[in-house]
């Protein structure tokens, strides 16, 4: 059984808290953080494996730039949660603000509630699983990876995405430029339902699949209107 090291944030700076989290992970402990109080930059740049839990909300850029850690937030997260993650996982029990899982290259980000605008913006790999709704421009300029939105998606979904796949269980308010929608295949459904079950989320009746139309990859005069709309 892992040793669990407890950290109380009250009266301490974010830097002190983060240094303690890192040193305890390096010693092989799990870390339980109390009184996080939605403060910013908590649990950033955790580059070792190990488990870190926050008993409440975190503020901006929580659990960003991590590589290998398993981070659980028993509350909500502000802007840019898990931004730039390389590997490991971040799980948000509540809702996330704008730019959740921005630019991640690998690993798994799970938001059990809703996400604000631009969830999964510029993702370069990894998986973002959203139990609720995603706001405006989810997966904007995504380059690789998978985004699963079990609720509804807001306007301009997957705008100007290069590659990667977005699945949506609910309604899509509108598609972004060069986003192409189809129904998910039975194979996709099988793979995803296992994943959804694993995280204890509600299975959607069906999933729609959104990919890049690849019309913006190279400039073509014939596509001038598409370019005008995108730029």
């Amino acid at each position: 059984m892992d040793r669990v090291h407890r950290i109380d944030c009250a009266g301490r700076t974010v830097r002190e808290i983060n240094i303690e989290i890192r040193s305890e992970l390096a010693r092989g402990s799990s870390v339980a953080v109390a009184n996080s109080g939605a403060r910013h930059n908590l649990g950033v740049a955790l580059l070792t494996s190990g488990r870190v839990t926050f008993d409440g909300s975190v503020g901006y850029y929580g659990a960003g730039m991590s590589d290998g850690a398993t981070i659980v937030i028993h509350g909500s997260a502000g802007w840019g949660v898990a931004e730039g993650m390389l590997s490991g996982s971040v799980s948000v029990e509540g809702n996330a603000g704008n730019g959740a899982a921005a630019s991640i290259r690998g690993g798994t980000v799970v938001v059990k509630g809703d996400c604000g605008a631009r969830a999964g913006i510029s993702m370069k790999g990894g998986l973002l699983l959203i139990g609720g709704d995603a706001g405006y421009m989810a997966s904007f300029m995504m380059q690789k990876g998978v985004v699963v939105i079990l609720g509804n998606a807001g306007d301009a979904l997957a705008d100007s995405m290069y590659e990667g796949v977005v699945y949506v269980g609910g309604e899509i308010a509108s598609l972004g430029n060069d986003a192409v929608v189809s129904d998910a295949s039975p194979d996709d459904m099988n793979t995803l339902s296992g994943l959804i079950r694993q995280h204890g989320l509600k299975q959607p009746r069906r999933l729609r699949k959104v990919v890049s139309g690849r019309k913006l990859w190279n400039f073509d005069h014939a596509e001038l209107e598409t370019w005008r709309a995108a730029l």
Partner: peptide, 22 residues
Amino acid sequence: NEEVAIRYALNNAGVAQEPSGN
């Protein structure tokens, strides 16, 4: 515009949510 204000001034009740744009 930051949840920290709500947690600092009020309490830990309720889940914070960020609405979309428009």
